[in-house]
Design a protein around this nucleic acid. Structure first.
Lengths: 266, 266
DNA sequence: GACTAATGTTTGATAGTTACAAACATACTG
DNA sequence: CAGTATGTTTGTAACTATCAAACATTAGTC
């Protein structure tokens, strides 16, 4: 191994697995690409990319439909598998559906992984709108600072992990309401801890408000969050700061109870 | 390249990508495994498997929770991505929910990929039971011969593709009702083509019946199927052969209309 | 339908990665 | 605290991945 300039050695990795993963990312982003298009995005010759794509097709990650490479349906099955082995999903699934029915809005079950938030499950009632937004939300990993669920989780993480995240990330401003500086964010998080729920007042996208509550373990470790998202017009101040938080917290508590009685590993 | 014994050369593949895929499969199957457990399943030294796992964690496919490697939440997002770029899902999603509400049973939206059936979406009404079964159904790729949706698709595939599948597979008998020989299966498929829907009379698991109808393209190519599954006790002969087929076909037709008006690529 | 351009596929050679083996470190067990 | 299982690191030999360039196929044009 060649030692780094600063004497540290890089940990050993399998380069071809990384390359394979890169190609999967490109195929995902392109939503259907030809060999030429895909190799244009990757710093390898088309011959090499060709071999990778054949291998990925063989392994069932990619399929070729109508001359274009796409991610295969196998990911749907893999996604369901991950869900069903996740205690939080099993415990929360029905509660989320219920909350969606009763509020009529979009409801999310969120977990944390690799210092990002991940959507475990989404359900919506019949008044829910802005489907395109939620589509994006479901598909791309999100940060903590500009969503209600994210802030609810971040507020309840052990302080060392919270510090690490606050230091590691630049907080991009999605709207003029987004909190972009660490000190203000810290204050908000302290508030959230006190009152038990988090708000998102058009901080992620204009015209949408959200309320989120953390889901805690039997030993007070945060394992996820629930959130309800609705247009500001339907979440007037009173509902936004009183009625809805109550409901969201209630749902979070229900999930906590399910988690504890089930004793399924998260 | 070393030529094969029979003079044919194997197409070139990236061996490490295959190995990575194999390890992902093992991690999936073990539902949380330690390095020792995972390397026991793979014909590589633990040092090598260690490097693979580190790489897979880096790339976001695998996470380590409580000392065990598991598939990461990223697969949920990838699965949703695949769904949402699939025209059939976009066109069929609401119709399936509707049918589940009205029948109260399990409803599946099925597509075909790599000579297997793949569950694109599942919805269930409030009478649906046997959740464990459906879990398995959702997670593992299935064959055509022992499900209603599978037979509906197989019946409408172009004859060359159908022949290829019929020849390639041994038809395992799941129950005493499963059709296991190609000639009988061919007869059944001809019937299905004539009457427009397929039945599964406890052929996959005992006590469960299902009705499936194909979803056809504007040029009569089959792109998928809808099916309703219910316990035999609630699908008496009359419902099984008359009422339910009508509903399932209706749903399939609705999806066909959605597909054509939307003109989203499949 | 012949000609051209673009895209996809195959292959020999070699730079460089992978996989082994074996040592080292750490965590569990009685 | 010894003993054992599990996880991590590393030098090196063997083999793979990658390039480059040729070849094949398909699509586009006049």
């Amino acid at each position: 191994m060649t030692p780094d300039p600063d004497g540290e050695t890089e940990p050993r990795r399998i380069k071809s697995v990384r390359t394979g993963s890169d190609i999967i990312d490109v195929v995902k982003r392109l939503q259907g690409g030809t060999l030429a298009e895909i190799s244009a995005e990757i710093d390898l010759t088309k011959g090499t990319v060709y071999t990778y794509l054949q291998t990925l097709v063989d392994s069932g990650f990619v399929t070729k439909r109508e001359g274009e490479y796409r991610l295969s349906f196998r990911f749907i099955a893999l996604g369901e598998h991950v869900r069903n082995e996740t205690g939080l999903y099993v415990a929360g699934h029905d509660v989320i559906d219920d909350l969606a029915d009763r509020t009529g809005e979009y409801v999310h079950l969120i977990a944390e992984e690799r210092n990002r938030i991940a959507v475990l499950y989404e359900s919506h009632g019949d008044r829910a709108i802005a489907k395109d937004y939620h589509l994006r939300m479901r598909e791309t990993p999100q940060y903590f600072h500009d969503t209600a669920a994210g802030k609810a989780i971040l507020a309840h993480l052990p302080s060392d992990r919270r510090d690490a995240i606050l230091e590691a990330h630049e907080f991009e401003g999605q709207t003029k309401n987004t909190i972009t500086d660490a000190p203000t964010l810290r204050e908000t998080l302290a508030e959230i801890r006190e009152r038990g729920y988090a708000l998102n007042d058009e901080e992620e996208i204009r015209g949408m408000r959200a309320v989120g509550a953390p889901i805690l373990d039997s030993d007070e470790t945060v394992v996820g969050a629930v959130s309800v998202t609705a247009p500001t017009s339907r979440l007037s101040d009173d509902r936004f700061r009183s009625t809805m938080p109550k409901r969201v917290i209630e749902a979070a508590n229900l999930i906590e109870v399910n988690l504890e009685t089930a004793q399924i590993d998260r």
